[in-house]
Design a protein around this nucleic acid. Structure first.
Lengths: 190, 190
DNA sequence: AACATAAATGAATACTTGTTCATTTATGAA
DNA sequence: TTCATAAATGAACAAGTATTCATTTATGTT
């Protein structure tokens, strides 16, 4: 028998992500995805039951990849600031390098494809970030503000930087990244 | 002859915004918009040439409403901090009160409906905000960081607050808003 | 080398959705 | 009141899109 081509799933995902960034979830068709991925329309239905499943599984993959990235090379034994910096930079760099995923996930939150339940799962994933912020508060480094607000502020500085860098077509340079981080840190610290 | 019903345009816009927030640009149909707006499908085509025009005009309206709001009750004669606070609060409150518009515009940026040219116009609209930040730098209040980064940081603190408040279903309380503003200010100031 | 099996194909099908248009309804003018 | 005009309607039509399936192609097994 003929085995499945393991690369195909990834080709489909890449095609879908590229098209969504270009035209939004509104604009993509199964036919276009297949063409972009270099295969026949029918082939998509060997790897996914239907369009809905394709998008849901891609969403789950993106979420996983994003979460796995947060704490890479984070060492809790190191001083708080260096750990916090590492996580901040991880998230920033990941979002720059995977901007298509960012756009795709953003669009999914208001779509008929992703259900409430899936969104709730995503919220659970910020637990580790929550703990990081709590540590900063415990060590009397961060302001005595509720953790959720501190986290929101941290994430906001990252998200907006990445978005603006992309739309203004001005790549984030090291000095700009450093400046953004300093502002975030100064805002959060006591 | 029978005159046009001036309310209809607004009914159509409200229906479209509500549906986009619920299902995304991907999920809306002319038929649904009409039903939600309480009129026949054909009526949409009296007020708009087609779906594309409907969305483009709605986009332009949202952009205008948003921009007109920035500097309401801003008085350049007042001290910088109170003016900056006013603008920050204006934007925050506008986005809370008009979250549907926020979602709609976000979705439009990656859609086949809105073209590059329209997006560029939006960028021009941030000129007044640019000048506000410059004033803060001129008065030696803000950090000596490039204006675009300062503005990005400011906007990021607002956007993420509104988004998180909505998705977590925790309305922004006065103390939380105050805390977010303080973090933004502390981050930007020297 | 021949066979069995599943992948891959893409035109055909079924369904969805944008748009039109013949008809009805409502309003201002004569 | 009647007429002229344009709005409003929604079923019919035209496009467009998801999904299927008969056929072809490729690969592992015997």
């Amino acid at each position: 028998m003929k085995p499945r081509d393991d690369k195909k799933t990834d080709q489909i995902f890449q095609a879908a992500l590229g098209l969504v960034k270009e035209k939004g979830l509104a604009g993509i068709t199964m036919c276009e995805i297949a063409k972009e991925a270099g295969m026949a329309t029918g082939t998509l239905y060997i790897y996914f039951k239907n369009k809905d499943e394709l998008i849901n599984i891609l969403f789950a993959e993106c979420r996983k990849a994003s979460a796995e990235n947060y704490f890479q090379n984070y060492n809790a034994a190191h001083p708080f600031k260096s750990g916090f910096t590492k996580v901040w930079m991880n998230i920033l760099k990941f979002r720059i390098a995977n901007f298509e995923e960012v756009v795709f996930m953003d669009q999914c939150y208001h779509s008929p494809f992703i259900n409430e339940c899936t969104i709730k799962l995503t919220r659970q994933m910020i637990q580790s970030l929550f703990k990081l912020i709590e540590r900063g508060k415990d060590e009397n480094i961060f302001k005595d503000v509720d953790t959720f607000s501190l986290l929101t502020f941290m994430i906001g500085s990252i998200h907006e930087s990445v978005k603006n860098a992309h739309y203004s077509r001005k790549p984030l340079t090291r000095p700009v990244i450093a400046a953004m981080f300093t502002m975030c840190w100064d805002g959060m610290k006591r």
